[in-house]
Computed example of a mutant assay.
Amino acid sequence: MSQDKTRRFTQLDVFTGRALYGNPLAVVHDAEGLSDERMAAFARWTNLSETTFLLPPTDPQADYRVRIFTPTGELPFAGHPTLGSCHAWLQAGGQARGDHVVQQCEVGLVRVRRQAEGDVQRLAFAAPPRRRTGPLPDDLLARITAALGLPRDAIRHHEWCDNGPGWAGVMLGSAGQVLALQCDYAALGDLKLGVVGPHAAGHDAQFELRAFIGDGDYEDPVTGSLNAAVAQWLIGAGLAPARYVAAQGTAMGRAGRVFLEHDGSDVWVGGEVAGCIEGQVRL
């Protein structure tokens, strides 16, 4: 049976230099021959927010191809799976053909660069363009305020942040307000919602983010796709500097840090990756 073979397996923690404080990711290497159904079944079994499968590229410009699954379906793009998959591919001996690693996923080609800051090594991906932009409609804002238990005037700014997963974004007046939120997922419905607020001066991060997944009834610890789209929105609107750090996962006992930078043409989304588990899986 072609699917019944031993494959390399890696489990990582993304957007942290310390294992157990970021967002976990499962990576299956050498995933050729696995059916969509088998990939989906394994992603349900790991029960992580995302599980990825590394494949040979079908685009000649790409270094590798990745497919990204949640326990409920496949995503065209996601941020922490991009950095984690790239880290796993490099650790397994992958060699980029150019200055950047080029990842092929359902949203297209995504460039990933390696960064060094002192002894700290980070990966960063170039944020893909948003599929939907502009202000959120009034009926959706009413659903969001009901789900978060907020008055309408607590939302200072709002914007579609959809770069594949379908994010909607709202900005509150402070990081403290963001951290105090309790989400009513039933009221949120099937919406994927990002909430951002600024930290006071002196904090190591300029913004705090939280990501509420209405169609899964859970909070994502550290979310690369959301941070990518929020950075495009905030920097483009003059609500954030061209370079900043975002904290995420604080309310869940994590310590995720996402490094955002606009270089004049692209927004780069960076972070550290910590290894947790290496072994083999039979699929």
Rank of each mutant, 00 (worst) to 15 (best):
M1S: 15
D13Q: 13
A19Q: 05
N23I: 08
P24I: 10
A31F: 03
G33S: 08
R44Q: 13
T46Q: 05
T46D: 04
L48C: 03
T51I: 07
P56Q: 10
P60M: 07
P60G: 05
R65W: 07
R67I: 11
E74G: 10
E74R: 06
F77W: 04
C86H: 12
W89M: 03
L90F: 06
L90D: 00
Q91G: 09
A92G: 09
D99S: 15
Q103M: 12
E106V: 15
E106M: 15
L109M: 08
R111G: 03
R111I: 09
R111C: 11
A116H: 15
E117S: 15
G118Y: 07
D119S: 15
A126M: 09
D139K: 08
L141Y: 11
A142E: 14
R143G: 08
R143Y: 09
A146L: 13
G149T: 10
G149F: 11
R152D: 14
A154L: 03
H157M: 05
W160S: 05
A168R: 12
V170I: 14
Q177M: 12
L181Q: 09
C183W: 01
D190L: 13
K192W: 14
G197V: 08
P198G: 11
H199P: 03
A200H: 08
A201E: 14
A201Q: 13
A205P: 02
A205K: 02
Q206I: 02
F207S: 00
R210W: 09
R210P: 00
D217I: 13
S225K: 05
L234A: 05
L234E: 02
A240V: 07
R243Y: 06
A246W: 00
A247W: 00
G253M: 08
G256N: 05
V267N: 05
A274L: 08
E278L: 11
